[in-house]
Structure formats: structure tokens, C-alpha cells
Computed example of a mutant assay.
Amino acid sequence: MTRWLVGVVGAAVAVGVVTGCDVPPAPAAAPGPSVVRPPAPTVAASPPATSAPASPPADPAPACPEGGVRLLEGAGDSAMGLRVADVRLVNCGTQPYALEGYPEIRLLDRKRAPVEVAVVHGADGITSAPTGVEGVPQKVELRPGQAASLALVWRNLVTDSTVPAAEGWVLEVTPRAGAPRVELELRHSVDLGNTGRLGISPWKATAR
């Protein structure tokens, strides 16, 4: 009886061992859900800082003409065909500049051809009204930067339809005897009609 029980138990243990070898291992745990992270946003590199463009240099002052003076077109006036204009002569040089009496005047048209005109001292034959061209010639000395003025008077009048009207757009001035001629391109023409007469004043000292 005892041998039988021992045999049974031994057989059972043997069967258990054999049976245990045939049992498959427990399945591995299923992997958890994958976490997919979006890629970090790409930060664009800032462009290199650039300095603001430099302002263009101011236009240099025009060079002083050979004679040391330049002409400037001044104010003008007109009424009932009577024209009055002012021209200034500025000492742009480094030495004093002396004037006396009347300058020599010449008018040119748009094509720079001479305009036929009689230049008279004062307003004789043009008007009897005061216009600023009157005055006694006197010596005027301009220090550097100072100016003298010259008044012009004429009539815009057409008295003969067969004679072309004259119009001056360039003023050539010889300020004093022997001096280089100075040229001024006018913004407002000397519209003489066909009167052919231009009155001028002597040089007068004036503020620049």
C-alpha cells in the first residue's frame, strides 16, 4: 500500500514536470501607444540689421564766375503792359568789387540769338511814371557777399503787326568797363513786343 502511494505520487510529480515543460510562457505585455511629438517650429533667422541709407549730399553752391560776381533775377511788376524788373549783382568773390554808372546790356532770345533793342538810361520814351530806373550814377563798392541792383523797364506793346514781337530770355551784362561779361537765364522773359526799347537804371547798393 505504501509502495503504491509512493509510486502514484512519483508518477504525478513526473507528469507535472513533463506537463510544466509543455506550458507556453505568458505573453509579453503589449506595448503602450506611441507618443508622436510634432517637430519644433523652425525659427527663421532675422536678416542682418542694415543702417538707413545716407541722405544724398546737398547740391553744392554754383561756382563763382570768372569775374567774381554773379547775377540773380529779382522781383518784377507789370501793369497795363508796363514791365519793371529787378536784377541783382552779387559779389561772390573774395575781393571788393567797385561799380559806377550803367552796365552794358545785351538780350538774347531762346535760341541765344541777339534781340534788336535800344538800351536807354532811364525811362525816356517808355513812361513818365516813377519806375525805379531813375537816379544819378554813383560809385558803389561791394564787399564779398554784398549786392547791387539794376532796374529794367519796358513796355509789352505791339504797334506794328508787320514787325515780329521780340522776347529776350537771356540777359548778358558787362558790369563795368573791361570786366568779363556775366550771363543770366531769365525765368520771366523781357517781352518787348515790337517797341524795341529797354530802359535801365544805374547800379545801386542794396542788401543781398
Rank of each mutant, 00 (worst) to 15 (best):
A30C: 06
A98T: 14
G74A: 03
P33R: 12
R3I: 15
P56M: 10
P38I: 03
V35R: 13
P96H: 02
A79D: 07
R88K: 11
A63Y: 05
V13T: 09
P103N: 02
V8P: 13
E73N: 05
G10S: 15
P65C: 00
P57F: 04
A113D: 13
P60E: 01
A113Q: 13
V69C: 03
P47N: 01
V87D: 04
P39E: 14
D86M: 09
P57W: 07
R83T: 09
T94H: 08
Q95T: 14
N91T: 03
S51D: 05
R106V: 11
Y97F: 15
E73P: 03
E116D: 15
D124M: 09
P25G: 10
V35G: 06
D59K: 14
A44K: 05
P41K: 01
K111F: 10
P56N: 10
V18P: 05
G81R: 09
A44C: 00
A12L: 14
S78F: 06
A98D: 00
R70L: 08
L72G: 05
A29I: 13
E104R: 11
A79R: 13
Q95K: 14
V15P: 04
T19I: 09
G74Y: 06
R110K: 12
P25E: 12
H121M: 11
A11Q: 09
S51W: 01
V35M: 10
L71Q: 07
G7S: 15
T19W: 15
M80G: 08
P114F: 06
